[in-house]
Design a protein around this nucleic acid. Sequence first.
DNA 1: GCAGAATATTGCGTGCACGCAATATTGCGT
DNA 2: ACGCAATATTGCGTGCACGCAATATTCTGC
Lengths: 192, 192
Amino acid sequence: MALARGPDNVRVEDIAAAAGVSPRTYNNYFSSREQAVVAAVVGDRAAQVAAAVVSRPAEVGVADAVIDAVVALYSDSDDHPRDALLMIANSAVLRACYVDTITMIEGPLTDAVIERCDRIGRLTAQVLSASVGAAAKIAVRQWLQTTSAPPSMPGFVVPSGSLPDLVRAALTPLAPAFDAATTHSARRPPGA
Amino acid sequence: MALARGPDNVRVEDIAAAAGVSPRTYNNYFSSREQAVVAAVVGDRAAQVAAAVVSRPAEVGVADAVIDAVVALYSDSDDHPRDALLMIANSAVLRACYVDTITMIEGPLTDAVIERCDRIGRLTAQVLSASVGAAAKIAVRQWLQTTSAPPSMPGFVVPSGSLPDLVRAALTPLAPAFDAATTHSARRPPGA
DNA sequence: GCAGAATATTGCGTGCACGCAATATTGCGT
DNA sequence: ACGCAATATTGCGTGCACGCAATATTCTGC
């Protein structure tokens, strides 16, 4: 719908009507118009991540399990049609909203991390999950910005390069933190 | 001003008038009313962090330098008067906005990290800085939520416990990532 | 099947964020 | 000092987010 008419030509009234509810009710579920649009594109990230994390074989470490799961999230292109991503890439607000979507995986990710290694502290798991989210945000943001010439004609942003690769590169620096969290060395072994 | 009259009794018009500008101009500088209130309380975090990071002695590693700097941010209580924090803690929107403030330190922090160890990749520095931000957010959010009973009377949230300690605890799991980023082991030495 | 509770939906009213285009202001070169 | 360009400020108009309270709907125990 936003694809057909352009994101700015979709009024809240339209979305509500399409959903068969009042505009006010729509607002009970989406805190902004852009969020509704993005949600329609990405679906339920939380469920995907949960599934992805549990589907990793038990032998691999937490770090790799998490990294693979998140990378997989941005590899399956079925949920992310080219044109939809293009539209998102061309609107600053949609970009921001799309990036914020990543936050929603942090909760489930925390649970998954705790489940995979139950000796880990809750706070640590939260921090690591949030870090993963932050890293993913950076990767996606950077990817969306690829040649995002703001001044110009709509429809000129051309996301290119491998998003999965970029995501993996962004997540890799965090692997040592996961490793350290699972093998409880007090901290800072290099000197001693 | 928000302290005296309550956060909800401050209209944009008032803020603008107090600043001696038109309401529209106020909106060019603050994207929301809450942001203006919070900004008035916290001042310029970016500057503080930059100063804090450079003021660490050169001998200490990046990890400790960063952690100490961020912890220091939440130790100096001069900028964070008790009553102001109480007000923020009691409003969901203000809480969120206050937590989001942390994001503003990521840019300067990235620069500082790169400066301290120039062999580090830009992406890695960004990821680590964002992770620090994410961890700090968790700590602050958790601290603000201490006994934050939503249903009840205004002024009943009592933030307690040591925020600096909580921040440090949240940041500590990230130290190994910093260590690994500075000493370039390819990754995953435990096996080989 | 029914009363009553719990929950979801809706309308209304209020302030607000923000694009746009006009106007005021600052800064620079000569 | 002057004019010009870059930048900051302002008014206006439009949709919108959201609190609140009334209403419709679904969920229980009996």
